[in-house]
């Protein structure tokens, strides 16, 4: 009788196995091949200062973009979670748009806005240069990763019953205190998840960054360049190193979230 009842679960397990193995094979194959056939290349890559500085730059700029997304995205997510207003649907679609726009298109748009003569690039040109500069990397990453931060955080705020904020207010908490003593701690998992998602999305961005800021090179640009020049043998060690670092960071992130 037991088997009969769990038929669906067994079927689901089989299907899950396929998608999981697909992801695992694609991710693990380069790592294993590298370790089996090119361990020396891998170690020399680990010591290559250009590679290390590129990876450091990627992680750092993505973190900065996530920080900016936090600062401006948390208030936006809260308003979207709590208030109804005219054009709300429109705002929500606009936020989702960077997920759907091909990133080459996003790159062209970013370039036209942030180049020296662009709408934002021009007035800022005396203070900040975006084209082929770190600020350019950050804005490109921010553009593509913002929805990955805002959406889970909005969901998190929606999961906090407004009654809880009301009760906190009646107990003597100001609006601000109710927000950071009740709303944020309850939505905290969602905020962490938004940070992780947006940060990871920033690291992985290539096309948008490429068009606005080819230099200084981020990891994906470097891998692309090495692939064009030296093929798989020259690019795979960097790819594997980046994958391992990201895996390490994400695993520690998950353990913190628990």
């Amino acid at each position: 009788m037991r088997i009969k009842q769990e038929k669906m679960l067994i079927f689901f397990c089989m299907l899950s196995f396929f998608i999981l193995s697909f992801i695992i094979i694609v991710l693990a194959e380069p790592i294993f091949s590298q370790f089996l056939f090119g361990l020396n290349d891998f170690f020399s890559t680990c010591r290559d200062p250009e590679v290390l500085s590129c990876i450091g730059l990627t992680i750092g700029t993505s973190f900065l973009a996530t920080g900016i997304a936090c600062l401006f995205g948390i208030p936006l997510a809260y308003i979207l979670a709590r208030k109804e207003f005219f054009g709300k649907r429109m705002v929500e679609s606009v936020i989702d748009l960077p997920i759907m726009v091909p990133h080459m298109v996003a790159g062209i748009a970013l370039f036209s806005v942030f180049n020296r003569h662009g709408m934002i690039g021009a007035p800022f040109s005396p203070i900040i240069r975006f084209f082929d500069a770190i600020p350019g990397i950050v804005v490109a990453m921010l553009f593509v990763s913002a929805p990955f931060f805002i959406n889970p955080v909005r969901e998190g705020f929606q999961s906090v019953d407004p009654h809880l904020e009301n009760v906190a207010r009646s107990l003597g908490a100001s609006e601000w205190k109710a927000f950071y003593k009740v709303t944020v701690p309850i939505a905290y998992r969602y905020i962490l998840s938004g940070i992780g998602m947006s940060w990871g999305r920033g690291i992985s961005e290539f096309a948008a960054v490429l068009l606005l800021a080819y230099y200084p090179m981020v990891a994906s640009t470097l891998i692309y360049e090495r692939f064009l020049m030296y093929g798989l043998a020259g690019s795979r060690p960097i790819a594997v190193l980046l994958m391992l670092i990201c895996l390490g960071i994400f695993l520690s992130f998950r353990s913190v979230r628990r």
Binding site: H163, N166, R169, S170, A173, E175, K181, V182, P185
Partner: peptide
């Protein structure tokens, strides 16, 4: 504003703060 009115409020769904234990809720 509510925080200056000195009223106590009790909801049907109790609305206890889920991230605080009983003492934490009472001492809030």
């Amino acid at each position: 504003p509510p925080e200056e009115r000195n009223v106590g409020f009790i909801y049907q769904d109790y609305s206890l703060f889920p991230h605080l234990n009983v003492i934490g809720n009472i001492r809030f």
